[in-house]
Design a protein around this nucleic acid. Sequence first.
DNA 1: CAATTTTTGTAATCTCCATTACATATTTAT
DNA 2: ATAAATATGTAATGGAGATTACAAAAATTG
Lengths: 223, 223
Amino acid sequence: MGQTKFWYLSTNRLFHDLPEKDKMEIMPMLKETRIGKKEFVFSAGDKAETIYILKEGRIKISRFSEEGRELTIDMLDPGDFFGELVLAGEEERETCAEALEDSYICAISRKNFEDFVSKRPALSFKITKWIGGRLKRIENRFESMIFQDVHSRVMATLQDLGMKYGVPVQDGILITVKLSHQEIANLIGAARETVTLELNSLKDSGEILMEGRKFILPSKRTL
Amino acid sequence: MGQTKFWYLSTNRLFHDLPEKDKMEIMPMLKETRIGKKEFVFSAGDKAETIYILKEGRIKISRFSEEGRELTIDMLDPGDFFGELVLAGEEERETCAEALEDSYICAISRKNFEDFVSKRPALSFKITKWIGGRLKRIENRFESMIFQDVHSRVMATLQDLGMKYGVPVQDGILITVKLSHQEIANLIGAARETVTLELNSLKDSGEILMEGRKFILPSKRTL
DNA sequence: CAATTTTTGTAATCTCCATTACATATTTAT
DNA sequence: ATAAATATGTAATGGAGATTACAAAAATTG
């Protein structure tokens, strides 16, 4: 299990190129926990004092309106870290983190993490890049929310997923994760029914293909 | 003028508590430029290699759609820095930076800035906080865009402005900057006409008061 | 493999807000 | 001061997409 954790540090986006010595130093500060599917790592309003690394599984970061509508901020994969906004001075969580499947996470206290990082400028840079990357992505989605209609937003989302989870197949790029219509709706700020309609019209027009319940982005060809 | 720059470093949010010695070191790397009202510091697509600090004036960060619609990302005041996303790996600007009035900015190359910061962990932390703060604000606006109608978004915007630029007066909080209806519209992703209508209905209902062309957020009292 | 729960399909209705189209007021430039 | 440019006011029309309300299909679970 210590071994596993060590291995894990090697795949993590932030830590993989740390010197062995540093890995040994941070390891004992990481506490591994199992989070069952549909359980929450934290919820809006919780006191924020921990940074997490997703080791195995999938985690969804989202916000809820008073009426219970959901906006998905991000979907995380193994190696991603989350709860990072405590580093930016967050005191109460503004988001919720929910496991989409049984997951394993490593937790480290803000204090320990900051001490560790403050001695390693290169790591600090990576964190800036990480958070900056999230900022850029959110800005892009914000823009697309304002300038584009549901049709374009659904397509943009599938394209993003294609970049991240796509594998080339016969007729195009297969998106290897399955997302319910509701989940797509939560990503683009639309009603589930509207997404269903849009998706079906995309199928009809050939803009997307299906392989079972998964989507394929067809490689462009002159029809 | 060197003196001015030195003074400036003392008011800047990132640098003000740097040791004198460090201020002396970074000073020669800062190049001061004047930007006339309505001029652009940079535009989307420009090569990104510089970080700026706003010394005097006001700068607006925005994005444009193909059809020329505008989304305002941020409004900056003296002491703020911008173009920071080069630190997060941005290679081409995704936003535009336009002077809302005659302004003075200090520019520093990415290389110089990174070298300087990498030797100063405390500064590095501040940058993380800065960018994280922007991330939080954008996420909040994104959420409000999705969950709330124009009425609430206008009110939320005025409330934000009140926090930032408000001074207490007789009947409430006076917002000391003037924003055109169009500018508010660009902040909340609405049509200018809709904002005009909404603003007038807010006046009628007493939810806001006017002092000339400026807004007052009335201190709550039981009507 | 039933039985439940979750997801998807479809259609009618309704609503908020964009669009269009000007009129008028206010500010800025000459 | 006068002209030109910007900002604001108002109203009619239209449309994208939310809401509501079910039915049917899939996927989970006991």
